[in-house]
Nucleic acid binder design. Structure first.
Lengths: 345, 345
DNA sequence: ATGTACTTTGATAGCGCTAGCAACAAGGAT
DNA sequence: ATCCTTGTTGCTAGCGCTATCAAAGTACAT
């Protein structure tokens, strides 16, 4: 009596191809993974069968049998924030031409989500991982350390990474922007911020440090919201700053979107930039150079962080762990019209 | 003689947990997938073992044994274009709380890449697929049709989708924007476009149709580049239009980034908007409402397309295929200052 | 003819998990 | 006592692929 077989996927398998080409299954497997090991005649015959049957290898079975995958998991807070968009471009450029593929996870700035995603990803036994920032929850940290695959933390800089790290100091960067405004003679310098994630808070700390150094610190100058950042939020934030401190004469923002929104609000109020008011953004997004006036901003190397991090993780997977596990990509103040006040240094 | 065992993954398995909890492997499996079927006592004991060992189920083995996955593959041309960013937000909102997970693939607007990605994705035996547009290559079409999993095409509208579709007519939308400019009395209306993908070309067709209808068509008015779209490209495109047709009096653009770049260029040239020059963007991105002047644009429902498409694919996976397989999300002309010319209708 | 080295193909036994049944106990109805 | 039901647990046999070893074929030198 025929035993009832369990449900199959219904899709063609290696064995189907093997039968069609009249060879053994393992030969088909080899023809795909290591073509040089199979004679040209067979190789061609097998390829023909694959095409006619429409065979696509089952990655789950491959992963299970070979105990490895070519997946690099990437956990970021947001796929839709233009800052991470640049990181992602770097990631794709570094992955191009390698046998690896990327799998993105989006925490939406939630530590709980991050932990869930981490578990999900580890279930896939990834070859390597990129995670955003250095503020993982204790549970997440334990999972990462226990897992054993190469991990690169990106975007932030700390001295003792889990494994490897590519980032820069948000605190120092924001302090530099603020000092630039101070050097231009601005005195009542506001800080506008949305999203309020860890890195935003580091930027606020940098701003505060620079303001305190100059004896200009005033907590009323800091206007924040926890809403997700967008250009249209810069407008009300800027308005709020004016109502709190009517004689404010400059703003350092958390990012360029807020700066652009603030710029539009100032144009509406007919406040002249940079004479009556200076603006310094953060990230130096594409539009800073063409806006009118051009926006002074702090350039960050987002594309490079993504690219470098992937290169490092691939190197580590391949056994060539970089000797320098921490890379500081730095930042650069780019001065444009929005802070070029006449008659000032 | 002990037979040499093959390489294991080294990570804890179901059997390890089972031994620790002193039950059989299948019981552990059940405790995870279908907790109600296991007595509370055992369930707790098993959970304790899982935690202490740090067990994470191997998804490859799960997929192989159960012949199904909870992966929905999503193939889009760009992860970093803000248009798709909104689609992605919709996707995530629709996926939230379901047992499904998403896997993104980025074709970078290349049909070859799309085909490669499709093969890669089909290898994972996804539960469903979202693909961008309706212009798949013949090979890609064949793969999709042969595969059998639910497929939703998004962003564009055609009448005979592969399976299901959520989109709108780019041609009609661009025609509406152009007609709006015509109705405002603008005559020499340029069209600025970057990226030049299929949907951009449909928009150009819509623009041409509206211009021809009004007897205003002039090919010199169409200025395009194949470079990827960004705000800073709007500036040179606008400058090029001026040098070709010095008395141009309006522009319809391919998207809002180009419109914003053009706006900045016009501000620099001290061309007054909307009196000397009208601008109509495309997509109605967030900054259109706050820019100065506010940008007239054609609102498209990107978030809704992403959300709806995922809902449809999940419904189809669950056997509740929507009775209406084609959804037209439409578009809406949003009139703002950039086309509100004084003394015109 | 024989040995050695190399190339090419195949047989076998899992990888870690789950489907499909089987087994068994406990309780209630007949 | 017997049957059925319900709830709980375990056994067995794969899912589709690849690692490992073995075998057969080929080429060349001895």
């Amino acid at each position: 009596m025929k035993k009832k077989s369990r449900k199959r996927s219904g899709k063609p398998t290696l064995v189907d191809v093997a039968e069609a080409a009249n060879v053994s299954a393992i030969t088909v497997s080899r023809a795909l993974r290591n073509p040089e090991a199979v004679s040209p005649t067979l190789r061609e015959r097998i390829q023909k069968s694959i095409d006619s049957i429409g065979y696509v290898p089952n990655t789950a079975a491959q992963a299970l049998a070979s105990a490895r995958t070519n997946v690099i998991g990437i956990i970021i807070p947001s796929l839709t924030n233009s800052v991470f968009a640049d990181v992602i471009r770097g990631v794709y450029d570094a992955i191009e031409g390698t046998p690896f593929q990327v799998q993105f996870g989006n925490t939406n700035y939630s530590p709980i989500k991050e932990e869930e995603l981490l578990k999900l990803f580890l279930g896939q036994r990834p070859a390597g991982l990129l995670v955003t920032g250095a503020a993982q929850s204790p549970e997440a940290l334990q999972l990462l350390r226990a897992n054993g695959c190469p991990v690169v933390q990106i975007m932030e800089k700390i001295d003792d990474p889990i494994d490897m790290l590519v980032g820069f100091s948000h605190e120092d960067a924001a302090a530099e922007g603020t000092r630039h405004l101070i050097s231009k003679g601005y005195k009542k310098i506001g800080f506008l911020a949305a999203q309020m994630d860890v890195r935003t808070q580091q930027r606020i700390v940098g701003y505060e440090r620079a303001m305190r150094e100059a004896g200009l610190y005033d907590p009323r100058l800091i206007v924040t919201t926890t809403k997700p950042s967008r250009v249209s939020l810069g407008t009300p934030l800027c308005a709020e700053l004016f109502s709190r401190v009517p004689d404010v004469d400059a703003v350092q923002t958390n990012n360029d979107d807020i700066a652009l929104g603030a710029l539009f609000e100032l144009q509406r109020r007919r406040v002249s930039i940079p004479d009556e008011m200076g603006i310094c953004g953060f990230n130096d997004l594409n539009y800073c150079q063409v806006s009118h006036p051009g926006l002074t901003s702090i350039r960050t190397y987002r594309y490079e962080m993504g690219k470098r991090a992937v290169e490092m993780v691939i190197a580590a997977i391949s056994g060539n762990r970089p000797e320098q596990p921490v890379v500081d990509t730095g930042f650069l103040l780019v001065e444009r019209e929005s802070t070029q006040r006449a008659g000032q240094s």
